[in-house]
Design a protein around this nucleic acid. Structure first.
Lengths: 339, 339
DNA sequence: CTGAAAGCGCTTACAG
DNA sequence: CTGAAAGCGCTTACAG
C-alpha cells in the first residue's frame, strides 16, 4: 500500500530541485544541466516515479494514443493487421485504443466521437467507412485519419490498399491463360472500394478479351452468402469452370461447396481468392490467391499516419501496394505460366 | 476551424451558471435543479460540448479504460475473444486499450507498466501469464486483473477458463468408447495451465482405463511443431489410431499431415481438437472438438472485472465453464454414443 | 441546489 | 540552466 501515487513533487523534494526541473528532465527537448538530470533520475528511480501521461496529455494536447477502428475479426486478415499495426505503433511509443465496431453508420459515429474525446493523436480505420460528416469533424479537430484496406474517393482521407484493380486484372489473365471457358465472380461487398476495384479489374479485363462471364454475385464478405451463391452457380444451367472470389474468407466457403457437390477443386472448377491469409496455404485449402502484402501495407499506414501527426499540413496520401498472385492447387496453372 | 475545444467554462457562460454547475450536470450522482439541467444541456448541445475524460480521469482516478493484453492472434480463438470482450466492455461504457504482446516476461512487464501509467481501471490478460512481481504491483496500485483462458495458481488473480481437465477427460472417454487402441496426445504448451489441465484430464482418464498411450508431445501451440510431431508419430513404429490435440489451431495442422500421408482422417486416424473455433466447422476440416463457450467465458470475465472495480475488497474468483464435445467427422463416433 | 475555490499532475512561458 | 507561477479542464469539499 506504499505504492501510493508518486508525483513530480515528491521527486523534486527528494532531489532538492523544483518541480519544474523534474518535469524538464522527463520532457523531450527541454534542457537541464547534467547535475540536475542525475539528481532527478536518481530520485525518480528510488521512488519509482513515472510521469502521468494523462496530465501530460491535458497540457500538450498529445495523448500518444492512436484510435484503431476495426469492423470484424472473422476474416483472419484483420486480426493479423491489428497485431502488426499494434506492434508497429507500440514500437513508436504510441498506445492503441481499439474499437471493434459493426460497420454501421451510427456505431462508427459514436466510436469516433469517443475517440476524439480521448484526444487521440490519430485514427486508423480498417475495413470501415466513415461518413463525410465525421471525416470533416476529424479534420476540424486536427485529427489525422488513415484508412487501411479501404479507399474512400472524395473524402480527402489518406488510405492504404493493395493494387486491387490490378489484382483483379491479374486473376482474369491467369484464368484466361488457363483456358477456362466460363467464368464467374463472387465479389467482395460492392459497398467497399476494395470489392469494387477487384471486380472492375477482373470484369474489364475479361471484357477486353471477350471472355464468357456467366455471373457476378455480391458475396458481401459473408461466408454463407458466398456459399449460397456458389451453390446456385454450380447447380444452375451454366456452371462455371472458374470462380474468382473477392476474398479468401469467402473462397474457403466456395471450395467447401464445390467439394460438397463432389467436384474437384482445381480440376472441375478453379477457384482464386484474394488476401493470402495463412489458412490459404494450409493443406486442406491450398488456395491460389492474390497476396495482400500485409507488412508493407501496415508500414505504409503507420508511416503515413505519423507523418501527418507530425506535420498537420501534409497532404493526404493515397497508397496502393502491388501484390503477387500466389499459385497453389485450387486453380489450374496454364502451361508455361511464368514460374 | 471553429471546432476549437469547447470547455465547461464556455457552457457555463452561455447557460448563465457557474462552471461547477455544468460539471454537476454531467456528473453521475451530483445534483442540480431541473432548471439548471435544462439550461446547461441546452447550452452544451449548442456548443457541441462533451466533458474531457482525461481531465475527469485525473481527478477521479477512474479512466474508464480497460487494458487488454493479448499474446497472439494466429489462433482464431483470440481475435474472436477480443471482439466479444471489446463489445461487451464498450456496452458498459468502458474503452479498451489493447496491447498485443509477445508472451515474454519483459514485454509484458513493459506493457502492464504502460497500462498502469494510463490509470486503467482494470486489466484483462488473454493467453498471457504475469510474473508474481507484476501481479503484486497491480494489486498494490489497486488495479484488478482477470486472466482469460489461463489460470495462474497461487497468483491470487481472478481467472476464467473452460473446464479443461474435464474436457480432456471427455475426450479420453470418447476415444476409448470408439474402440481406439493406440492413443497419442499432442498437447497445448505445458507452460500454460490450459495445456496442462487438458493433458492431465486426458492422461489420467486413460491411465484409469489402462489404455495404451503411445506418446505425449508438447505442441507449443505452434502449427509447425504440431505438424512435425504428427509426422514423427505417423511415420514411427507405433502409429496411433487416435490423436488428441491441445487446441484446434494445432489440430488443423495434424489433419493436414494425416492427409499428406494419404491416410483418412476419422477412419485411419481419429483427431480431436479443443476450442471449436469457426474453422473447425468448415467442410475441409469438420473437426470433432471440445467447445470453449466463448460468450459465457467473455461474460464471466467482464462481470468479474467490473465487480472487482466497483468493490476492490471483493475476493478473486476462479471460474470454470463447462463445454460440450462437438461431434463431427474427424473422429470415429462410438456406436450408440449419446446423441 | 449553487458558486467560489482548491487541487488533480503535469508543461511551459516568464524572469532571472 | 532554473524556479515561481499560471493554466490544461475538470471534480469536489466547503459555505451559503
Amino acid at each position: 500500500m506504499n505504492e501510493t501515487k508518486v508525483t513530480s513533487q515528491d521527486v523534486a523534494r527528494l532531489a532538492g530541485v523544483s518541480q519544474s526541473a523534474v518535469s524538464r528532465v522527463f520532457t523531450q527537448g527541454a534542457s537541464a544541466s547534467k547535475a540536475t538530470i542525475a539528481k532527478v533520475r536518481d530520485a525518480a528511480e528510488q521512488l519509482g516515479y513515472r510521469p502521468n501521461p494523462l496530465a501530460r496529455a491535458m497540457i500538450t494536447g498529445k495523448s500518444r494514443i492512436i484510435g484503431l477502428v476495426v469492423a470484424y475479426l472473422h476474416n483472419q486478415f484483420y486480426p493479423l493487421a491489428l497485431e502488426r499495426l499494434s506492434n508497429a505503433l507500440q514500437a513508436k511509443g504510441y498506445h492503441i485504443l481499439v474499437f471493434t465496431a459493426a460497420n454501421s453508420k451510427d456505431v462508427i459515429e459514436r466510436v469516433v466521437r469517443d475517440l476524439m474525446d480521448y484526444q487521440v493523436d490519430g485514427i486508423i480505420t480498417a475495413s470501415v467507412a466513415m461518413s463525410s460528416d465525421l471525416t470533416e469533424r476529424c479534420a476540424a479537430a486536427g485529427i489525422p485519419v488513415v484508412m487501411f484496406n479501404r479507399g474512400q474517393p472524395g473524402s480527402g482521407l489518406s488510405f492504404v490498399t493493395s493494387a486491387n484493380f490490378e489484382g483483379g486484372r491479374k486473376v482474369a489473365k491467369f484464368l484466361l491463360a488457363g483456358g477456362h471457358k466460363s467464368l464467374a465472380h463472387i465479389s467482395g461487398w460492392q459497398g467497399s472500394s476494395t470489392g469494387r476495384d477487384r471486380q472492375h479489374g477482373f470484369v474489364e479485363t475479361l471484357a477486353a478479351h471477350e471472355a464468357n462471364l456467366v455471373a457476378i454475385v455480391d458475396g458481401m464478405y459473408d461466408r454463407e452468402v458466398a456459399a449460397e451463391a456458389a451453390r446456385v452457380l454450380i447447380d444452375g444451367p451454366n456452371p462455371p469452370d472458374a470462380i474468382f472470389v473477392g476474398n479468401d474468407y469467402m473462397a474457403f466457403a466456395v471450395v467447401d461447396v464445390i467439394r460438397e457437390r463432389n467436384l474437384r477443386v482445381g480440376n472441375d472448377i478453379s477457384v482464386v481468392g484474394y488476401d493470402d491469409v495463412p489458412v490459404a496455404a494450409w493443406g486442406a485449402y491450398s488456395l491460389t490467391t492474390v497476396r495482400q502484402p500485409l507488412n508493407r501495407m501496415v508500414d505504409a499506414t503507420v508511416d503515413t499516419l505519423l507523418a501527418q501527426i507530425n506535420d498537420p499540413t501534409r497532404p493526404s496520401q493515397k497508397i496502393e501496394i502491388d501484390g503477387p498472385l500466389i499459385l497453389r492447387t485450387s486453380a489450374r496453372i496454364p502451361a508455361g505460366w511464368p514460374q
